[in-house]
Design a protein around this nucleic acid. Structure first.
Lengths: 185, 185
DNA sequence: TGCCAGGTATACTGATCTGTGTACATCTCC
DNA sequence: GGAGATGTACACAGATCAGTATACCTGGCA
């Protein structure tokens, strides 16, 4: 990606996430990235494609954060709930909920690339939870993984509201892992 | 509200929820409700106001469904998780997630009426959970209520994705209530 | 009979939207 | 020095956006 292309994606990330995809026009993105609209279209072809690139980049950044949190965990049990630690960091600067869920809200067409990207992101996290649950010695890792995913998404979805639900969800996640990893789990 | 007004709100509900608020223009709503744009503006004054009415009407319909499910529950323990039964019914025809979370995604301005309506809706459910948790004899109803809310919102938020997370969240909710209502809860 | 609210029909404003056309500048690499 | 890629500058098309103006119709009610 060219320097101008990177600036465009950076501006698109900030604007799309904070103001909404439909509400932000390509003119505004071009202005914020110090680039001509012509350059934007030469690089990305269409707004829809730029939206897809925005979501993909964001997904990569988020996965790297989660991976780092999992790798930094001291024990296998802590690793299972490490994504909730990552979420705590992530949601400090991302206060408008999940960018992918939000994108689906604005782009109802199932053939839009955003739908596949969003689904892949959630399935990736689900698989990660299942791997970590298996590693911790849980007898039903698939069930635990789904429960953890729901808790995670619930915490993200309620982020824009004045609730502070992250501690409750992270606490419950740890309790679930404790119970599942115990001899009777 | 006049007959034309009701038709406008009905059309707005269907279009705003399924296609997105920003993506749907007032012309389309007028056309779908068999009404002139002049009538729409005579009734609601602005698109923003119509959006607020749409969310308020939807909120009332949803609360009635939840209340009915709670009242129909056989035992206090079943009453606590009754909102998850209501959610099962509700999400059969509402497959695009939470209309209020989606609205916040599209309307970043915190002074927009949608923000207050969305926050009120979640707080109402949180309070309902807490009341029901208290009635079932839970020692820490506030904690349980927050956990149940997160589970509920997680299930709703992941509805547009190919996951089927509702059984997992409802099952976990019942397990939590069982544990909290037991002598050692 | 007359009034008036609710509603229709239609044209319009001014702004904004995505996307394109065209001509020119700059830079690197061969 | 020339070619091709990167980017600028700017005007433009065609559609759609929220919202308004004006004139007219119709049913109920006083």
């Amino acid at each position: 990606m060219t320097p101008a292309g990177r600036r465009i994606v950076a501006a698109a990330e900030e604007l799309f996430y904070n103001r909404g995809i439909t509400a932000v026009g390509v003119d505004l993105i071009a202005e914020h990235s110090g680039v001509t609209k012509r350059t934007l279209y030469n690089q990305f072809g269409s707004k829809d494609h730029l939206v897809a690139v925005y979501l993909r980049e964001r997904d990569q950044r988020w996965r790297a954060l989660v991976r780092a949190a999992v790798d930094a965990a001291g024990t296998p049990a802590e690793a299972v709930t490490a994504p909730f630690e990552a979420l705590r960091t992530w949601s400090e600067t991302n206060t408008r909920g999940c960018a992918f869920i939000n994108a689906l809200a604005e782009l109802p067409d199932p053939s839009h690339p955003a739908h596949r990207i969003a689904a892949d992101q959630k399935l990736w996290l689900l698989n990660l939870f299942e791997e970590l649950a298996t590693a911790v010695g849980c007898s039903q890792p698939a069930t635990l993984a789904t429960q953890l995913l729901v808790l995670h998404e619930g915490a993200v979805a309620t982020r824009p509201l004045p609730l502070d639900s992250l501690p409750a969800s992270a606490g419950l996640a740890r309790a679930l892992v404790r119970a599942a990893a115990s001899p009777r789990g």
